[in-house]
Amino acid sequence: MRRNPYALAAVAAAAVPGMVPVTTVSIATPAEDLEVAGITGEDGRRVVVSCPATTAAGAELEKSVRVADSLSGTDVRDLVPAVLGFVTLPGGGRAAVTEAPRGRPLMFDQVTEDPSVAVSLGATIARIHTLPGYAAEATGAESFTAAALREMHRSQVARVREAEHLPAAVSQRWERLLGDDELWDFSPVFTHADLSEECLFVHEGRISAVQGWASARIGDPAADLAWLVAALDAEVFDRLYAAYCEHLPSSPHPRLLERAQAVGEFAVADWLLHGLDSGDEDIVSDARGMLADLEADLAQLARDEAERTYDDLES
């Protein structure tokens, strides 16, 4: 049963001492089983209430809040809205109340149109990746070795191949990538692992907050760059990546971008398997379309390479 705005405001009042709600506004989220609302108190204070509607959503919320709370004592605390309190729900689980992030949710066009946003996003990702090991471990996030992550990708690709949904050219490319030892010889770092527009906020041209830490792990830094490599124009991504490198204490893995591209491609395999496992034909069709597009891109690259080789022979 969906909770009305008054119920969500009551949660905020119960979790935050002295909070007297004045206005409530629902906040849309990608998660259908999580209700989120922004509450403003009579003193002008703004908070966010998150109420899970299922056990799975409750577990995800608990992990996200636990990680966020642990990060409050690190160098990225200014990016993580403070956890203010919890309220036990009648049907089980807990609602969480956090400070409202400054600014507004990131619109992807801002990364392309405003150089300062691209630079700030690159620097923000670098700050996350440079959290010291002890701080990352204190969040309780899972830790994966490079070998384990590589094997996870290999297993997912094998399942797609067995389901006979993998075009031959894509299969050959992925097999080659997964067989490249140097590509997967990297040092794991703390990652958000689920960055998107929905969890990033912008204020005055800078990333002001990062939310949604349920997938945080000690893993592959490429995971936080993959979605950007795929979506941004080369010039915009170069600006972002330059800022990322500038804020690292040492040079990144020499093939980090190549691996980020690969991780982005493997995400299509994950999406397809999600569709197959859930029996959602729309997702399956969407993922198969992505694989067809990738196959076409590979074919075009092969043609371009053949033309360059022929031109070299002619010259």
Rank of each mutant, 00 (worst) to 15 (best):
G73V: 09
A82G: 12
P115S: 00
F108Q: 07
L71T: 10
A53Q: 13
P105S: 04
G92A: 04
A100P: 06
G103Q: 10
L106C: 00
F108W: 10
P52S: 08
C51K: 00
S70H: 11
L84Q: 06
C51W: 02
A53N: 08
V48D: 02
A59F: 07
S72A: 15
D114C: 01
P105A: 06
K63Q: 14
L121S: 00
L106Q: 01
T112H: 07
G85D: 05
E99S: 13
C51V: 15
G93C: 09
D114P: 00
A95I: 04
P115A: 01
T98L: 03
P90W: 12
L84G: 07
Q110L: 09
V111S: 00
P52E: 02
A68T: 05
A56E: 12
A56M: 04
V48L: 12
D109K: 09
P81A: 08
A95Y: 02
F108G: 01
Q110G: 02
F108A: 03
V83P: 00
K63H: 13
D109S: 13
E60Y: 03
K63W: 08
C51D: 03
V117F: 08
V67C: 04
D114Q: 10
S72P: 00
V80H: 03
E113V: 06
S70A: 15
T112N: 01
V111M: 01
V67Y: 03
P81D: 03
G91N: 07
R77Q: 12
L61N: 07
P101I: 11
V97G: 04
A59H: 11
A118L: 01
V80F: 03
S64M: 05
G92N: 07
G93A: 08
L61E: 08
E62W: 11
D75R: 15
L121A: 02
V83F: 15
E113R: 10
D75W: 14
A82R: 15
T55S: 08
S116C: 00
V76F: 04
D114H: 09
G122Q: 01
A118H: 01
K63V: 10
P90C: 09
L106V: 05
G91C: 03
R104C: 03
V97W: 03
P90V: 14
R104V: 13
T74N: 11
A56Q: 06
A82F: 11
A59T: 13
A68D: 05
E60Q: 14
V111N: 01
T98C: 08
F86P: 02
A57Q: 06
V87F: 14
L106E: 00
V111W: 02
V87N: 06
V111T: 06
D69Q: 15
G85M: 05
A82I: 11
A100Y: 10
V80G: 04
V80C: 07
V119S: 04
S120T: 02
A59V: 14
G91Y: 10
S120D: 02
S50A: 14
T112S: 13
L71V: 06
T54I: 10
V49W: 00
S50F: 04
G73K: 08
D109A: 13
V87E: 12
